[in-house]
Write a protein that binds this DNA or RNA. Structure first.
Lengths: 338, 338
DNA sequence: AACTGGATTGGCAGCGCTGCCAAATCCTGG
DNA sequence: CCAGGATTTGGCAGCGCTGCCAATCCAGTT
């Protein structure tokens, strides 16, 4: 149980072969149910495996099988953060999809840092994964070079606003922003503000704002004011930011938030300040945080197919086929706050 | 880019050695900064690596180095779910702690299914990880046998209410329940109900309730009623469950929730139903969901050191030393709802 | 009884890298 | 200019497993 003791020699395939009185390759075949072997052999091998408590060594298996059909059974995943609920949901989808084919995932978190992402990609590739799933389309030149050179299937998820390396699964963040703006405009709101987080690092949030602002401008009602807080999105940040925004620009009739948790914070601000929603102020979020559906007034927001994106990413990873962009779209939830 | 093409032969260490005009072991030494070599050699190796775009194969490295100092650089993690915010937070802590030592984590999700957990433990062990981090203390006999036989460091996290296999990092869920009950009793609440999720599967939630109910009973004010919904915790479930509970048992003056998201749902129910908090009904949650701090009335709840648990788990994994229980405690947030 | 084709089986090279050890090289003082 | 020790280097045997291929076995044929 203690790592410091020289690690006990574990049971190997050849131990099993000896115990079962058969050859190594026979054991290997039985274990992988590959090739032919008799029922009797199978039973004897199974018995020996159980008796010795044999655990196959996949490092060796993958090494030996590399460049062959067996191939590796690891998939590398790079996500920017675990703080935002989006990413656990994506992982959940991926885990589901991968399970189906018996792959295991090695996960690394980049903290929205492109340099770090590059390093992590290198580290993941060194495990010779069957494929890599990364987030977004923007990577350092070094990262792109590594991905290209790796020769494995690459899936870039979440964002479809731009050219991808191989498989791209997600939706258009710009279109999300645009749709949000159009919804607000359609409801008659004209003096619209924005509350957001950390746009320099979260490039997708930046694209949403760009789409949103462009649509407003095109309609002749440009974004009136914005309050952007550094750091990740959170309810507390949303509440504080909305307070500041309203103190500064008092005549806003609607606010678009970079994320539902920010919007929830904004909702709490209005509740505490006694501002009626959507009469005095309309709120519009992003991301279909489940919680927002349980609010007394369900939040008006955009729901993105996070789980599905993960599933499709996992699925496509195993499949062959040409490079491709899979746009899974998004859904506008009318809600009651805008 | 396409998996179907016979995977191109990747650059190997011996390619680098040839290109740099040195021996393989020299390249290996330079790359691992282990042993001695001249500056000139180092430069030539570095140049060749860069020129050829060499990516070391850690499968081979770990295999060759196994049973030796180099050892494996993977850590296996089994968590029951990604839906509950707790687990991403734990992962975040682990990722932080592991980064420091350059380990990579292979993550598997058991869906609160012990059989599945056992299978996943087997799968993870087959990667010959440096250690395994699992959730909770309850495992199938088969899982325990595998963990024991693996000879690697095991960390069981989150729960300290019982005997562990090796290292245990967490807090007492029973004590959490007890402390919650004592807080409510101390505030004068006497007719107390409970709203929870899926206790059969989430054993920790079950232990919290057990501690809570025991403390109430000991004080002579036994739990008056409970409403338990199948399925994972969520705000929507909390809202609905509270509604049902109150419809059935109208004289409750406080409700304990199995989770903050459930409690938030309960809060929304009160808001919508016009019940004053905590005058008409007090609410007490669990888990210090960040969002609850931004509520107009901050939720009274218990904050658990999730991030820290992950960090300590990762840290202990690499360290030697005897089996041990690390109780990181928890913090009661007074809030304004109870 | 010899023969045939398919089902089973075992031997062994080799996946890419590291550890060990011997060989080569470099210094420094005498 | 050389011995003797320190530093640097290369060769090679594995790590545990899989793929390939030749060997063996067996039931059915001729």
């Amino acid at each position: 149980m203690n790592v410091h003791q020289p690690r006990q020699r574990l049971v190997t395939l050849s131990d099993v072969a000896r115990a079962a009185g058969v050859g190594e390759s026979t054991v290997s075949r039985v274990l992988r149910k590959h090739g032919s072997f008799s029922k009797g052999t199978q039973d004897r091998v199974a018995e020996a495996v159980a008796r010795l408590g044999y655990v196959p060594n996949r490092l060796a298996g993958s090494l030996a099988g590399s460049a062959n059909s067996t191939g590796p059974q690891l998939v590398g995943i790079v996500i920017p953060s675990l703080t935002n609920i989006v990413f656990p949901d994506l992982l959940r989808g991926i885990a589901g999809g991968l399970d189906a084919v018996g792959f295991q995932s090695v996960i690394a978190v980049s903290d929205y840092d492109p340099e770090r992402e590059e390093a992590l990609i290198g580290a993941l590739l060194s495990w010779r994964p069957a494929g890599l799933i990364v987030t977004g389309l923007e990577h350092t030149p070094g990262a792109v070079a590594r991905l290209r050179a790796s020769g494995v299937r690459i899936v870039e998820m979440v964002d479809t606003d731009g050219p991808g390396l191989d498989i791209v699964v997600g939706f258009s963040n710009r279109a999300v922003g645009r749709a949000s703006a159009e919804h607000l405009l359609g409801r008659g709101y004209r003096r619209i503000g924005f509350v957001g987080h950390d746009l320099d690092r979260d490039l997708r949030a930046g694209k949403r704002l760009a789409g949103f602002a462009a649509a407003l401008a095109a309609a002749g009602h440009p974004l009136r004011d914005r309050e952007i807080l550094a750091g990740p999105s959170s309810a507390a940040a949303g509440r504080e930011a909305l307070g500041r925004l309203l103190a500064r620009t008092t005549d806003l009739d609607a606010v678009y938030f970079s994320n539902d948790d920010m919007a929830l914070g904004g909702y709490f601000h209005c509740l505490a300040a006694g501002l009626s929603i959507p009469g005095r102020l309309a709120l519009f979020g992003y991301n279909g945080l489940d919680i927002t559906a349980a609010m007394p007034q369900p939040l008006s927001t955009i729901r993105t197919p996070r789980l599905r994106i993960g599933e499709v990413a996992a699925e496509r990873l195993g499949a062959g086929g040409p490079a491709e962009i899979v746009d899974l779209g998004f859904e506008l939830i009318e809600g009651a706050t805008a």
